[in-house]
C-alpha cells in the first residue's frame, strides 16, 4: 500500500480557554477528494488553517508523503504544495486581481541591481491562468473591491490552483454561489482530481460532497465523529452523525 499524501496526527489546538480541536487525525491519498463536514464551530476551519500553515497547532504532527512537515508559515506550506481558499477568500480589496494572485510570491526582475516587481509578467501570467481555468474576471488590473462576490471567489480559486498545488483546501467554496457557479466549482474540483491533486472541501452542502467527493469526515465540537466512503453511506446517516455527534455503526461500543 502506498503512503498517504497527507496525514495529520493527533492535532490538538486551544485558543486560551477554548479547545477547538481534541486530538484530531486525518488521512488522505493523492488525487482523492475529502469532504469535511460538521456543525458550526466544529473546528473544520481551524484544522485546515493548521494544515495550510496559517496557525500553529498546540500539539500534533503533520506528514506529507510520509515525511514530517517542518513548515511553520503559510509560505512554507505553499512551498510544500498546499494551497487554501479561505472562507472569506483572504483577498486584499485595494490590490489588483494580479497583485492578489501573486501576493507573497511576486515575480521580480533586476532594475540596476534592485529587485523590482515585474508587473507586466505577472499580469500576463494572471491572464493566462484565468483563461486556462475557464474563469472570467473583467480585467486582472482592476482592484478586487470592484469585483462581485463570485468574481472574487474566482480570483481566490485561481490563486490556489495556479501554482502547481498538490493539495487544495477549499473552505465553503460554494457558499452563497448561484447554481451555475456551483457547477463551475465542481468542474474545477473534478479537473484538479484528474490532474492528481488532492482536495479537501469544507461544506455545509452535503450534495456537493456526494457529487464529487471520495470520502467524508464528520466533526463535532473539535472531535472526529466518523469517516465514510461516499459510496458506502447516505445523506441521512451523515446528517445523523452531524447532529448527534455519534457514529451509529459504533453504537453500543462507544460510551458517550
Amino acid at each position: 500500500m502506498s503512503v498517504n499524501h497527507i496525514e495529520m496526527r493527533n492535532i490538538y489546538k486551544s485558543f486560551g480557554a477554548v479547545t477547538a480541536l481534541h486530538d484530531v487525525s486525518l488521512e488522505l491519498q493523492a488525487g482523492k477528494v475529502l469532504g469535511l463536514v460538521g456543525d458550526n464551530a466544529a473546528g473544520k476551519s481551524t484544522l485546515m488553517k493548521i494544515l495550510a500553515g496559517a496557525i500553529p497547532p498546540s500539539r500534533g504532527e503533520i506528514l506529507i508523503d510520509g515525511k514530517p512537515a517542518t513548515y511553520s508559515s503559510p509560505i512554507g506550506a505553499r512551498e510544500s504544495g498546499i494551497e487554501m481558499i479561505y472562507q472569506d477568500f483572504a483577498l486584499v480589496p485595494e490590490l489588483t486581481v494580479a497583485q492578489n494572485i501573486f501576493l507573497g510570491r511576486e515575480i521580480t526582475r533586476s532594475f540596476g541591481g534592485i529587485r523590482v516587481l515585474d508587473r507586466k509578467k505577472m499580469n500576463e501570467r494572471a491572464r493566462k491562468l484565468f483563461s486556462s481555468l475557464g474563469l472570467r474576471v473583467p480585467s486582472v488590473t482592476l482592484s478586487v473591491q470592484a469585483l462581485s462576490g463570485g468574481q472574487q471567489q474566482a480570483v481566490a480559486i485561481a490563486r490556489a490552483t495556479g501554482f502547481d498545488a498538490r493539495l487544495v483546501i477549499m473552505d465553503e467554496p460554494t457558499a452563497n454561489l448561484g447554481a451555475p457557479a456551483i457547477e463551475k466549482v465542481r468542474d474545477t474540483i473534478t479537473g484538479l482530481k484528474e490532474a492528481g491533486v488532492s482536495v479537501i472541501i469544507i461544506s455545509h452542502r452535503l450534495e456537493d460532497i456526494f457529487a464529487i467527493g471520495d470520502y467524508m469526515m464528520v466533526m463535532k465540537q473539535g472531535r472526529v465523529v466518523g469517516r465514510r466512503d461516499v459510496h458506502d453511506t447516505d445523506n441521512a446517516e451523515i446528517v445523523e452523525m452531524i447532529v448527534t455527534g455519534q457514529d451509529p455503526r459504533r453504537a453500543g461500543k462507544a460510551v458517550a
Binding site: 475557464g134 474563469l135 472570467r136 462581485s148 463570485g150 474566482a154
Partner: peptide
C-alpha cells in the same frame, strides 16, 4: 459559451 462564476456575495 463562456463558463463563468457569477454568484454574488453581498459586499
Amino acid at each position: 459559451m463562456r463558463p463563468e462564476i457569477s454568484g454574488r456575495i453581498s459586499n
